[in-house]
Amino acid sequence: MTVRVIVADDQELVRAGLRMILDVQPDIEVVGEAADGAEAVALAHRLRPDVCLLDIRMPVLDGIDATRELAGPDVADPIPVVVITTFDLDEHVYAALRAGARGFLLKDAGPAMLAEAVHAAARGDALIAPSITVRLLEAFAGSAQSAPAVNPAEPLTRREQDVLAEVARGLGNTEIAAELHISLSTVKTHIASIMAKIGARNRVELAIWALGRRGRDSQVRHPE
C-alpha cells in the first residue's frame, strides 16, 4: 500500500528536497505541499493523507500547533504527524511529542531514516532520531529507574534483550545491526516484537522501559 504524505515547510527548496527524497520511494507518494501550518491543516483535512511531515518554524501557524490540531489528544480522527526540523532543541521535542507527533527528526537525518519515520507513523508506530532519544533518556532516567517496569506480555528472547540494550544506548537500527552482526531487517523485526510485548509506542518508551527494568533488577535473566 502506498503511503500518502503531505509536506509542510515555509522554504520552497526544503519542500522540493523532501518531495524528491520521498517520491523516489516505491511506496510513498507526496500528495500535497504547504508553506505554513494553517495551510497544512486545511490541506490535511481536505486530502486526508496517511502522514503529515511538518516543519516546526512556519508562519501563520507553527508546526507544534498544527500538530496539535491534526493529531492532538482531543482530535477525534487524528492524522499521524512526523515533525522534522533544523533546530535540535529539547523544548521543541517535548512540545511536539505532547502535541501528538509520532516522530521527530532533524533535517540531516538522511533519506533512509526519513522514509522509515514516515512508514512508522503510517502503521501507528513512532520513530525519534537516536541522538534525541539519548537526551530524552537522560531527562527521564531518574523517574524511569524508580518506577516499576511492567512485565512483558511474553518473555523477551536473548536476542531481543541484546537489541533492547542497544536501543537504550540511543543507537539507530543500522548501528544496532553492525554492533550485533545481524541484518537491518532482523533488527526491525526484533524491535517490532519488543514493542508489541511491552506495549511501547516508540524507541524512547522502549529505552525507558529498559531503564526501569534495570533499576528493579540489575541481573537480567534471559529465556533460552
Rank of each mutant, 00 (worst) to 15 (best):
G110T: 01
A139R: 13
A177C: 07
V134T: 09
A177L: 05
G142Q: 02
I176W: 07
G142H: 06
R123T: 15
G110I: 03
G124Y: 05
A168L: 06
I132A: 04
T157V: 13
L171D: 04
V118E: 04
L184K: 00
A126N: 06
T133H: 00
L137C: 03
V167R: 04
P111S: 13
A121Y: 09
R169S: 11
A112H: 12
A168V: 10
H181P: 08
K107G: 06
I132K: 09
R158K: 15
S143M: 01
R159A: 15
F140M: 09
A120C: 13
E179Y: 02
I176H: 06
A129M: 02
A109N: 01
G110V: 05
L106H: 03
A178W: 09
V134Q: 04
R158V: 15
A147M: 01
E175I: 05
E154Y: 07
A126F: 04
I132G: 00
L171P: 00
A168Y: 05
E154A: 12
P130H: 06
S131P: 07
N151G: 10
A120M: 11
Q161F: 14
V163N: 03
G170V: 02
A165M: 10
E160G: 12
K107Q: 06
I128W: 02
V134I: 15
A153F: 00
M113P: 04
A112F: 03
L106Y: 02
A139C: 11
E175R: 10
S131T: 11
V118H: 09
E138R: 15
N151K: 13
G172V: 08
R135L: 10
E166V: 08
V150R: 14
N151S: 11
A117P: 01
E175A: 15
A149Y: 09
A126G: 14
H119G: 09
P130S: 02
A149N: 01
G110K: 03
E160V: 12
Q161Y: 15
E116Q: 13
R169G: 05
N173A: 13
E116W: 08
P111T: 06
V134Y: 01
L105Y: 00
T174E: 13
A117Q: 07
A115N: 12
M113T: 10
E175F: 05
T133Q: 10
Q161N: 15
D108H: 13
Q161T: 10
T174Q: 12
I176L: 02
S185Q: 00
H181N: 11
I128Q: 02
V167T: 08
L105N: 07
D162H: 15
V167N: 01
